[in-house]
């Protein structure tokens, strides 16, 4: 039997909001250690890696490893039915053909159950290599969201240039150009507002706005986002999910064909 319970269904709602624009369906790998999703978008330009640790759940039981193929749009519709304060429980039996979402109101006077059919999916086992990055930048997620949104007006891509002083985002197109420089914060008294740059080598990489604007949908999950960059390897854009796990987006830099 598989059962995972979260007191705050809002977390799962936000997780779905953060992946539904990139993935139409995905395999949820459930084991004793937690729930993991690794899936590429249809165009094979980005990869989503979601990790929810079992110890982050309020109740977690997984008797045997399960691979459950789920429609992300259907799951998203079901989670929209949960009240903001509801508790959510995911439940499936061994060799399941469906998964049940149970929403319980805080005073336990309302109990709603939604059953979703699982889908058969081709298993894509991806290996994410260990990489030491030339630059790792931590910054407020709201700032990153705003920069991606603002610069998207000027072109289809944004160039990230990182030095030890800070990071510069720039875009150019038919209407003109724009660039935004963020300096490393001198004193990180307020952790949520801090901009921290760890640089081994300066990097300059260009990424598609379309994908960046999908990644920033994870902004409501965490006040800070971490960007890890090296030449010729995918950008990693990471948001922590409270004490329960993280979502990482990988995006290949634009390379002139």
């Amino acid at each position: 039997m598989f059962e995972a319970r979260l007191t705050q269904s809002a977390i799962l709602k936000k997780v779905l909001d953060a992946v539904k624009d990139l993935l139409s369906e995905a395999t949820f790998e459930c084991s004793d250690s937690g729930i993991q999703v690794q899936a590429m978008d249809n165009a094979h330009v980005s990869l989503v890696s979601l990790n929810l640790r079992s110890d982050g759940f309020d109740k977690y039981r997984c008797d045997r490893n399960l691979s459950m193929g789920m429609s992300i749009s259907c799951m998203s519709k079901i989670l929209r039915c949960a009240g903001a304060e509801d508790t959510v429980t995911l439940r499936a039996w061994d060799s399941p053909e469906s998964i049940v979402f149970i929403f319980e109101s805080p005073n336990k006077d309302k109990l709603a159950e939604y059953e979703m059919k699982l889908i058969n999916m081709d298993q894509e086992h991806l290996g994410i290599p260990e990489t030491s990055y030339s630059c790792v930048v931590k910054m407020p997620s709201a700032e990153f969201t705003r920069i991606c949104r603002d610069l998207s007006q000027f072109g289809e891509s944004i160039t990230f240039a990182c030095t030890k002083e800070g990071i510069k985002f720039s875009a150019s197109g038919d209407y003109g150009s724009a660039n935004i420089k963020l300096a490393q914060t001198a004193d990180a008294d307020n952790e949520e507002e801090a901009i921290i740059v760890n640089m081994q080598e300066p990097v300059k990489l260009t990424f598609s706005c379309r994908y960046l604007n999908c990644f920033v949908k994870a902004g409501p999950l965490c006040n800070q986002v971490q960007l890890s960059m090296s030449d010729d390897v995918p950008l990693v854009c990471e948001y922590k999910i409270g004490d329960i796990g993280h979502i990482r987006y990988y995006l290949a830099p634009k390379i002139d064909d």
């Binding site: 990869l47 390897v233 995918p234 990988y250 290949a252």
Partner: peptide, 14 residues
């Protein structure tokens, strides 16, 4: 495209 190839190569299938 090269970007797709880069990603496919980077996440080599196990």
């Amino acid at each position: 495209k090269k970007s797709q190839k880069l990603l496919d190569t980077y996440f080599k299938t196990k």
